[in-house]
Amino acid sequence: MTDSEQNSSTTAPVVACQGVQRIYQQDTVPVYALRGADLTINAGEFVSLAGPSGSGKSTLLNVIGGLDGFDAGSVVVGGVDLGGLNAAELAEMRLRNVGFVFQAYNLIPVLTARENVEFILQLQGTPNQERRERADAALQRLGLGDLGDRRPGELSGGQQQRVAIARAIVTEPVLLLADEPTANLDSKTTEELLGLLRDLNPQQGMTIVTATHDPIVMGYTSRQVAMLDGEIHQDSASAD
């Protein structure tokens, strides 16, 4: 936490990882997914996390988002030290502070686009009227104003991923984590989606971290971080 005070910005960083290790046990053989990753992300940054497959991008996102634990180091998100939280507290933290967008769109198939977005507000205990308004506003912002009543199966891949983003941002999280969100989309749809994400970024002051190995994606981000073998290999913020 002394690190955050040394930072140039007046506010505390949204993400502060130090020496994070994550070791998986695969058939008694340890697999080092993260071998001491250090990463600090400030409010409003749009960060791409690049690197070859298996370099630990997903693992790092999952650890930051409180989906996965870690074996050494410290992870502080929005001022909260994740190392001290139990499963229920982590769930609550994800619900309140983090928005997720996954590679596979991961919408609930039996719910309409609007209901998918409302679902998470419902979990937060938002009253009915407000829930509906906020869900519609989020869909509107992602250009889905007319498609709220459709189910995921009736939407294209790009549209589904936009619903997923609407769901992720509707709670106004401090941090939006996206793991290869465009991997299943063509380049035109990818550019549309990234344009929307980039607009969200200054509009809402939302901090976004996206794992990718697509150069198009990196071109849209304000900071590019590259990973290799479970460590931060290059960082445009420190290279400058």
Binding site: E92, R94, R96, I108, P109, L123
Partner: peptide, 16 residues
């Protein structure tokens, strides 16, 4: 499994 895992990821607690 995947869908339910996603609900957990979004922050739905075990009780719900």
């Amino acid at each position: 499994t995947r869908e339910l895992g996603m609900l957990r990821a979004l922050g739905m607690n075990q009780r719900l």
